[in-house]
Amino acid sequence: MPEGLRSPTVFTPKTVSEAVANKYRNLSAIFWAGGTYIMSRPNFYPNPNQRDIISLAGIQDLSRIYHADRYLEAGAMVTIQQLLTMGSFIFSKELNNAISSIGSSVIRNQATVGGSLCTGDMRFSMSCILATLNAQVELRMVTKSASAKWVPVSKLYDRKGNFLFADSALLTRVRIPTDTSSQFQFISRTLDSPMLNPSESVIFGLQYTINQGSIASPNLCIAFPNSCFYMSQDFDNLLSTLSFPFTQDQTVRISKRLVSDLTLSVRQNANPLQIERAARLLEVVLNEINTNYLAG
């Protein structure tokens, strides 16, 4: 071991309450799920300021998957591969493809659902996918009473994509709507790998339904892995004004509006290539929806 380094203490709680109590007593400790994000940081080891670790691997409650009529509830320690396994029976093909695009099975076997949502300064496609689907998460607050509350995934991040509950809560469960009777359609695209090329990668998700010849209840989410998490009610309202068939002018007008919104939202932080890619992705997706509608 290099001189001056200390080996971090590893806590291995068996229950959620125990984990929260550990964190409450030792606020500098970090929750450890799969570890793919934490260990891929360039200064992870050796690091003289290494924090103690609360490993969540021993908590059985966090590894459970529960399926009800209208939703699938996954514990935070369920790996993305396990979610995909269940998803192959429950989710749509598009959603399965979106989840499997997160990485190869080597990464999916290690990365967890909770961990992929709680990464401090970088968004993976999981957060964008779940925000688009209006998924909710249960947070156990790091307080003496360890109170719990359900929060939509879209409320977990600020505009720059920073996780808002980094040291103040433990994410325990994720509830993903799976109501197959609804007519919602889901589209997701990821350009470049958020893990390998975060400064050029774009994650795009759109959920919508078609009602009386126009787009209804759209829910758009665009994320740049390390600089932006964009969801806007105003923009969703703009999308819902579109009636079929869209003209090229309408599509271009909307993508220009997206460019100005994103530029305002991320200011100097984003790569111009990412903004351009997001706008083009929106155009492509709108044209695809238009074509599908016209084709019946």
């Binding site: 450890w32 570890g35 793919t36 260990m39 940081r41 080597v106 990464i107 076997n109 290690q110 390998l196």
Partner: peptide, 23 residues
């Protein structure tokens, strides 16, 4: 240095894993 180049792949209990991402 942890950016997932894939060169440090090992089999842990029969499953492939990147050894730089396993503490």
């Amino acid at each position: 240095l942890g950016a997932s180049c894939g060169n440090c792949m090992v089999l842990i209990n029969g499953n492939a894993a990147l050894s730089c991402l396993v503490p």
